[in-house]
Design a protein around this nucleic acid. Structure first.
Length: 296
DNA sequence: TATTCGTGGTG
DNA sequence: TCACCAAGAAT
C-alpha cells in the first residue's frame, strides 16, 4: 500500500472532528474512543463537547453520580459504557495522578478499555507507534492488502500483524497512518458503496487487481433488535432518564406488554448497576436516591 | 469462539 | 421497506 499517498490524502482531507483539535488531552481522546465504540461520529460529537465542558478532567467525572453520567450519556446506546468510563475516571484519578496512562498494558487495565481503545489512546493521544485495529482498518486491509471484498472474522494476532507491517518506523508518522487508515475506511473504503474513484491508494489496491470480488467469507451474524431484551432495557432506561423522581413499578410496566420479559430486563438492569431500587420500592438511576442493596 | 449489550441513519 | 451498519468490550 502506498502509505505516503495515504498520509498526504489525510493531511488534505481529514474531517475536522472535535477530538482532533490541537490541545485535546488524553482524557478527551479516551472519552471520544469509548463513545465511538459501535456509535457513529455524528451522534457522538455533540455529546463529547458537552462532556468536555462539564468534566474536563477524569476527577471531574469521577465526582459525578452514576445517574448524572447516565443522563449525560443520553441515547448514545450501550449505557454500560458510561458506567465503565465513570469507573475508569475514578481509577485514573486515584491511581494515575488524574492523567490518562500512555502505556497500552496499563490502559488495558481500565474498565471499558479493550484492544482497540487502548491502542487508539496510545497512538492518537500520545503519538505512539502501535497498530490500531478497528472495523474500518480491518476492511481497508482486507481489500487493499488481501484483495478480498470485506474482512472475515476478527483475528487479533493476524489483524495486528497486518497493520503493524504497514506502519512507518517513525512514531509520529505511524500514529498519523493509523488515523488515516481509519479515516479511509470511514469515508472512502466504506462497507456499502466504496468510493474508489476518490481513493488515495487505488493504484496499489489488491481488491481492484483481483477484479473486485464479492465477500466470500462466512456469513456475518445479523443483530436483531426489535423484540429483544436490548430493546426492552432501552425502553425501561429511557423512562428513568426522563424523570427526576424515582418511577413506580406500575409506570415501568407500561413500556412492554410481556410481563416475563419486562421483569427479566428490569432485573438485569439492577444486576448491571444501571438501575437501583429506592427504599420505598421505586426504581431510579443509580447513586441519587439512597438505593437498597441490589439483589442478585 | 459466540453472544450479548442500544440506538438511529441509510441504500 | 427493512436488513445492514456504526472508531468494541466483556464474558
Amino acid at each position: 500500500m502506498d502509505v505516503p499517498a495515504l498520509l498526504d490524502w489525510f493531511d488534505e482531507t481529514a474531517r475536522d472532528l472535535p477530538w482532533r483539535a490541537a490541545g485535546t488531552t488524553g482524557w478527551g481522546v479516551l472519552v471520544s474512543e469509548v463513545m465511538l465504540q459501535q456509535t457513529p461520529v455524528a451522534r457522538v460529537a455533540p455529546i463529547w463537547q458537552e462532556w468536555m465542558a462539564r468534566w474536563p478532567k477524569p476527577s471531574d467525572l469521577a465526582a459525578a453520580t452514576q445517574g448524572e453520567v447516565l443522563r449525560a450519556w443520553g441515547k448514545l446506546g450501550y449505557p454500560r459504557r458510561a458506567l465503565r468510563l465513570h469507573a475508569a475516571a475514578s481509577a485514573i484519578a486515584d491511581d494515575h495522578g488524574d492523567v490518562v496512562p500512555a502505556d497500552v498494558d496499563t490502559l488495558l487495565g481500565l474498565p471499558g478499555v479493550g484492544a482497540y481503545t487502548a491502542r487508539a489512546v496510545a497512538a492518537f493521544a500520545y503519538g505512539q507507534r502501535c497498530p490500531v485495529v478497528d472495523t474500518n482498518v480491518r476492511r481497508v486491509v482486507a481489500r487493499a492488502v488481501h484483495g478480498a471484498g470485506d474482512a472475515g472474522p476478527p483475528s487479533t494476532t493476524k489483524d495486528m500483524a497486518d497493520v503493524a507491517a504497514l506502519l512507518p518506523e517513525d512514531a509520529a508518522a505511524a500514529a498519523k497512518a493509523s488515523a488515516a487508515l481509519m479515516e479511509l475506511g470511514a469515508v472512502v473504503c466504506v462497507a456499502r458503496g466504496p468510493r474508489c474513484a476518490d481513493c488515495p491508494v487505488f493504484d496499489g489496491c489488491a481488491w481492484q487487481r483481483n477484479g473486485r470480488p464479492a465477500y466470500a467469507g462466512p456469513a456475518k451474524a445479523v443483530q436483531k433488535f426489535a423484540g429483544t431484551d436490548r430493546q426492552v432495557r432501552g425502553l425501561l432506561l429511557d423512562v428513568l432518564r426522563d424523570t427526576d423522581e424515582p418511577a413506580t413499578k406500575a409506570r415501568l410496566d407500561r413500556v412492554w406488554s410481556d410481563a416475563g420479559q419486562r421483569d427479566r430486563c428490569l432485573d438485569s438492569l439492577l444486576v448491571d448497576g444501571l438501575v437501583e431500587q429506592t427504599p420505598d420500592g421505586r426504581f431510579a438511576l443509580p447513586g441519587e436516591h439512597g438505593a437498597v442493596s441490589p439483589r442478585g
